[in-house]
């Protein structure tokens, strides 16, 4: 598995270098005095980092550029977390970092020394589903399923945020306990896009789990 990862990374590195070299003259970016395209040739920098993923300590050496998302998917083979836009716009990569939801794509792995990370694989298993996973199935809260792991991680965090009294843009009052309403859920879930448009069923699933807890 590791050998395969290394091959993939070096192939990617080659493609990246090629693309950068190709784009430099077109962009007219500054070159060094000797005429080298120094930036494109800059060597990768490796760094060590360790954090806990789904209860298991992971010690890794990574290129400093590696996002948390790419570490999860490409190094740890936890491919439940999805790469959609890779720019923090779609929410497919949502994970729980120290109990709070974040976009794993907009985070560098080396910045998370000692962190506790939970991915969709850590929330539940096919044999023991998390209540939110079971509710998404019951309410048909997906079609293609690509955004679903991110939706579910986000939804679990949303219920926790409401429970803790964290206000949202949809909250009528900043000082009172927020409601578990469809408006609140829609607003709080707006960072998770679903191309299939399963939104109404997603809201139903989250409402049901929220009502039980």
């Amino acid at each position: 598995m590791n050998d395969f990862s290394e091959i993939k990374i070096s192939r990617r590195g080659l493609l990246k270098a090629g693309a950068a070299l190709g784009s430099v003259p077109a962009l007219g970016l500054a070159q060094t005095a000797s005429g080298d395209t120094a930036a494109a040739a800059a060597a990768p920098v490796m760094a060590k980092v360790s954090f806990t993923v789904n209860g298991q300590l992971r010690q890794l050496e990574v290129d400093t550029r590696t996002t948390l998302l790419d570490v999860l998917r490409e190094r740890l083979q936890l491919t439940g977390t999805k790469k959609g836009c890779d720019h923090g716009q779609c929410g497919a990569c949502t994970i729980l970092l120290d109990g709070r939801r974040i976009n794993a794509c907009l985070s560098l792995a080396v910045m998370h020394e000692g962190a506790q990370i939970t991915t969709i694989e850590g929330l539940g298993t096919p044999a023991r589903l998390h209540p939110m996973q079971a509710a998404f199935i019951r309410h048909d809260g997906y079609q293609c399923g690509y955004c679903t792991p991110g939706q579910i991680c986000s939804a679990v965090a949303v219920l926790d945020e409401i429970k803790r009294g964290v206000p949202s843009h949809a909250s009528a009052s900043l000082t009172e306990q927020p409601l578990l309403s469809a408006d609140e859920i829609r607003e709080r879930m707006s960072g998770n896009l679903c191309r299939c448009g399963a939104y109404s069923n997603i809201v139903d699933a989250i409402s049901e789990v929220g009502g039980q807890s």
């Binding site: 923090g88 939801r101 206000p167 900043l174 000082t175 879930m189 707006s190 960072g191």
Partner: peptide, 23 residues
């Protein structure tokens, strides 16, 4: 902030997504 600087809470909550605001 919620009690005394409500406009600041409101402005923050109007921006980005829950995931982004956490970071």
């Amino acid at each position: 902030v919620r009690r005394d600087y409500g406009v600041l809470s409101r402005a923050l909550l109007a921006g980005a997504s829950g995931q982004l605001r956490n970071k």
